[in-house]
Design a protein around this nucleic acid. Structure first.
Lengths: 127, 127
DNA sequence: AATATTAAATTACACGTGTAATCTTTTGAG
DNA sequence: CTCAAAAGATTACACGTGTAATTTAATATT
């Protein structure tokens, strides 16, 4: 009986991002990759450990060090977060979300073209 | 000075929802409207007070009671939450978000029709 | 083998949030 | 005018999270 999909905090997701970008990596490499955040090395190691506890990453021994790799994929995480927003904020419906964006976000021509292509693709698949 | 836009927690947003649905309302009415949540009356009053502190609602005296009304609109809140998801999870781009939904969410025919109508509307407005 | 490094594990601590209980003040009932 | 009921204000408390410091264990060096 273990957690279906671990839920990741915001800080944790930034550590995941490093591993999604490339894995496996040692904690030292991860710390280096997160230099821009201003986080203390200790902080990053804490986050790594929490991710281990949540089984969002795995650690494989490599000599004296561990190499970390993601167990939760970026796609899975995006799904969770998207669904959460959809349910919490838009009553679970996609169209209101898009309607919202259409009114309040600046969509580029490229965005619009992509969206149209997507709808077409979805539509074709649906029939 | 004062907070540009207060950030609302999940529980608080459910209280806001009652006021977005109809306002102004007394705390008693709000408690009644949230009967389905299983929350204790005290809990709901706490949430109301926190919303007051965050200036997400205003309270106008009405005899011995207060009448509450939203200062933060549903639209504003949806914007905040959407933008937060977009930035945190999708690097700030709308198309990847929608692409994600197209791959992972089951869109009903009605959804698809609505989306198409939206795109058309956006497109017409854009040109 | 004893000791110094260093990675990892454990512990810490403040603050936000969910979830209330208690205290205070106001006001209607007698 | 006194007292009880009720609305609101204050206080509580555990848990998650951001942010680390301290302790332990493993390994490299002398």
């Amino acid at each position: 009986m273990n957690d279906a999909t671990p839920s990741i905090t915001d800080a944790e997701s930034q550590v995941m991002a490093v591993l999604w970008d490339q894995a496996p990596r040692s904690s030292e490499e991860i710390v280096a990759a997160l230099a821009g955040t201003g986080w203390h090395e200790k902080t990053i190691r804490t986050l790594l450990n929490r991710l281990l506890g949540k089984q969002a990453v795995a650690a494989d021994r490599d000599g004296r060090r561990y190499l970390y790799r993601p167990l939760l994929s970026r796609e899975q995480w995006q799904s969770q977060e998207s669904r959460s927003l959809l349910d919490r904020v838009f009553g679970g419906r996609v169209a209101p979300l898009l309607a919202h964006f259409s009114r309040h976000e600046k969509l580029s021509d490229k965005d619009i073209a992509e969206l149209r292509a997507l709808i077409d693709a979805i539509d074709r698949k649906a029939r």
